[in-house]
């Protein structure tokens, strides 16, 4: 599959994520859109990894070129999991304090 297809696809997903962040006010949805963007990047990383692998395969049939990309995806997932645990804890705190998950309520750095 031509790599451009993957790039276009992932860009679309990424942009949808950005639009989500821009148009929604619910902190949880915003957070979810960030996860969406992360996933778009993940998929693109895997696609690139397989692209490099395909290139490497021409020289060496036992190559492991491109494996880094997949490992990066792995690490991104790890970081995403950690991020979500803390992020959701913060959102729960926010909800407890303001009884809302509206990010527009968070326009003050104090209190």
């Amino acid at each position: 599959m031509p790599i451009q297809y993957y790039i276009y696809f992932c860009l679309t997903l990424f942009s949808i994520g950005i639009i989500g962040v821009l148009t929604r006010r619910n902190a949880i949805i915003v957070f979810m859109c960030i996860e969406l963007m992360l996933n778009a990047v993940n998929l693109l990383l895997v696609a690139f990894s397989k692209m490099h692998y395909a290139a490497g395969l021409r020289q060496d049939p036992a190559t492991s070129a491109g494996i880094d990309g997949q490992l990066f995806v792995f690490f991104i997932m790890v970081v995403a999991a950690a991020e979500v645990s803390v992020g959701l804890a913060i959102i729960v705190m926010m909800y407890r304090n303001t009884h809302s998950v509206d990010i527009n309520f968070l326009n003050r750095l104090k209190n």
Binding site: I18, V21, L22, R25, I103, L106, N107, R108, L109
Partner: peptide, 12 residues
């Protein structure tokens, strides 16, 4: 404004 959304919009 303190509105995160606006910041992100400007950033994009």
């Amino acid at each position: 404004s303190g509105q995160v959304g606006n910041y992100i919009l400007v950033m994009v």
